[in-house]
Design a protein around this nucleic acid. Sequence first.
RNA 1: GGACAGGUGGCCGAGCGGUUGAAGGCGCACGCCUGGAACGCGUGUAUACCCGAAAGGGUAUCGAGGGUUCGAAUCCCUCUCUGUCCGCCA
Length: 429
Amino acid sequence: MHDIKFIREFPAAFDKGLARRGLSAMSAEILALDLEWRTATGRLQEMQSHRNDASKKIGQAKAQKNEAEAQRLMADVARLKDEIPATELRVREYEEMLNERLSAIPNLPAADVPDGADESANIEVRRVGTPRGLNFAPKQHFDIGEALKLMDFDAAAKMSGARFVVLRGQLARLERALANFMLDLHTQTFGYLECVPPFLVRDQAMYGTAQLPKFRDEQFGTTNGYWLIPTAEVSLTNQVRESILDEAQLPMRFTAWTPCFRSEAGAAGKDTRGMIRMHQFSKVELVSITTPEASDAEHERMVSCAEEILKRLGLPFRTVVLSTGDMGFSARKTYDIEVWLPGQNAYREISSCSNCGDFQARRMDARYRPGAGKGTQFVNTLNGSGLAVGRTLIAVLENYQQADGTVTIPEVLRPYMGGLDTIALPHAA
RNA sequence: GGACAGGUGGCCGAGCGGUUGAAGGCGCACGCCUGGAACGCGUGUAUACCCGAAAGGGUAUCGAGGGUUCGAAUCCCUCUCUGUCCGCCA
């Protein structure tokens, strides 16, 4: 949500930010609406003031048993009875129009975000690790998984249709091992607080992190008003909604391993084979709540926490900063981490870390009290995958595949796999 | 699902339809006191929005939304959340 005061004060800067996102100028239209609202509000408050004044005097007159004076005042104020509700209604209508308008506008990009229309303008900031040379033709993860009889798309399709999978045996365990490894690193080394949050949330939570109102089609909802979270960002970030924190409590760092549900509307035909793009997948999420001053540094830190997972797993990756045209709705700046997939001979997104500034905080009404000075300020919120577990599993399969169809388990995961060092066909020994 | 009991400021806790933004306490801030502290004393301590250069003024907010009234924290209705007990249940 945008700050109407900022738009009033710096309309040109606001429009310029929109232009960088490829959007047309909106400040004039918004400010016209704002002026209507302020005019109506002024009028309403004048009438209310008048009424309050008269009511007070009526009270005094009655206390003094001056019934005639009371009657006179009551008649005087009677006409406000019609006007006040009508004006109230008008104020509310303007307010709603303004909110509707503002809540559908994406966050403005940070100054150091590269301009561009789409992902082709993204800029690689670093590349870590080198793809291991394979002396055979690398297979894609689904071929590896199906050959091992541990990844079953057909069984999943029979009960749930496309974009679902069943993992079994050591692959099911690998998923759990990856999540545990990630959680342990984030909690024990990086100081994130592990959470088990709700997977079903109400409208206002989805509105707070800005999945609503604009991205309703991409969500799964229940028949009785809940939404399945598309990411734990929603539940983790909304923990601080409608609250006023002490500056000393910041930064707050949360992590959670949760399932994520996405309808993938608009992704028809994309990544139809394999488990790159599922309706349901699991992810270890990172969320930070900080002061505005600290959020840029926290953003860098968060990216490095996510990267550390890949480093320890020995998976090659590159980190890119998204261009204005490729960023998500709430972000003012986003880094994507892309992991190397030999089977696809490509880097594919495995994490996305965004600094949302105070954009979500305004929607959630999440504030803090600065240690020095009076009043309250909106917190900054950041979120990032650390990492998408399903895609990490894919990356392990493809990068650690052997010519004989087996998969070596990365050293750091072996303690989580009961000491196992290789995934092979069951009963194949 | 059934039956009760409740939601008041950072926290606890009063509150008769009229000068209550809201007693009292705690906490916090500043000042006095002190060698320094505690104690004590004094003063001050909500949020959002509107008008204003500022000083300041105004409006709204006692879970939410409606209603009654000249006037609602207080009365009525609906919803919601929390607690307790019963039932059911992983």
